[in-house]
């Protein structure tokens, strides 16, 4: 959920950072990467300040029925924010790697800029975009600090895999459950990595490289 929701904004930010020169580019770059460097707990606390029920935006959003705090949506938001820098990095690199000359050629054939992006730039950078999405997904799976600070650890609502494991290791007799979840976590991560590797290889083969 977090991965899907952040895909489009991620692409937009990656495109801006890869292709455009504008005022505040460095600032945007810094903001996007902040969650990567900040302690997750700090990020979670900032989210709480911003999107909590009495937060800067949270109050306004609650008016129109969107509530993040202590809901699964909040967990998703936290995961998205934490995964965002990884996603943007991968996408930006792959967008930068697309040969501008091919885009020019498409333009001379009558393709307007938006179409060039859709049928040339996007397909050519697909391996990187997928890699970015998988990285963000993996990050979301492992998200702990920001989530627990922002929306706590409510089973079935805001519990992520690591927080569930943590909970299980804190109660007597929870080792078996923790081990099960650990296996699930390893399996999911492995599957995600393999899937991204396979998709990237398939895309590369299509390009004949």
């Amino acid at each position: 959920m977090a991965t899907l929701a952040s895909l489009l904004p991620g692409l937009a930010v990656a495109y801006l950072l890869a292709r455009r020169e504008f005022r505040g580019r460095a600032l945007l770059d810094g903001l996007v990467h902040l969650p990567l460097i900040l302690p997750p707990v700090v990020t979670g606390y900032l989210l709480l300040l911003a999107f909590g029920r009495r937060g800067w935006f949270g109050a306004a959003l609650a008016e129109i029925g969107i509530v993040f705090s202590f809901r699964w949506t909040g967990a998703a938001l936290a995961c998205a924010v934490m995964g965002f820098p990884l996603m943007v990095r991968a996408m930006r690199l792959s967008l930068e790697a697309v040969d501008r000359k091919l885009e020019q050629a498409a333009g001379t054939l009558g393709a307007p800029p938006a179409a060039v992006f859709l049928v040339v730039t996007l397909p050519l950078s697909l391996p990187g975009i997928l890699a970015g999405a998988v990285l963000a997904f993996a990050k979301a799976m492992g998200e702990f600090g920001a989530t627990i600070t922002f929306v706590s650890n409510i089973p079935g609502e805001t519990q992520t895999l690591p927080s569930a494991i943590y909970t299980l290791t804190q109660v007597p007799g929870g080792e078996a459950g923790a081990l099960r979840l650990t296996l699930v976590s390893v399996a999911l991560s492995m599957a995600a990595l393999l899937a991204s590797e396979w998709l990237a290889r398939r895309a590369r083969r299509r390009l004949g490289a």
């Binding site: 091919l102 050629a105 333009g107 054939l109």
Partner: peptide
């Protein structure tokens, strides 16, 4: 703008679109 000029351009390097077949490249325009 470039895409409305209807000026064909054959570059030094062919600049074919690598993710499309020859037929799709030909019909791109």
């Amino acid at each position: 703008p470039v895409h409305r000029r209807r000026i064909g351009y054959v570059f030094q390097e062919a600049r074919l679109l690598p993710h499309l077949s020859v037929r799709q490249n030909l019909l791109f325009g």
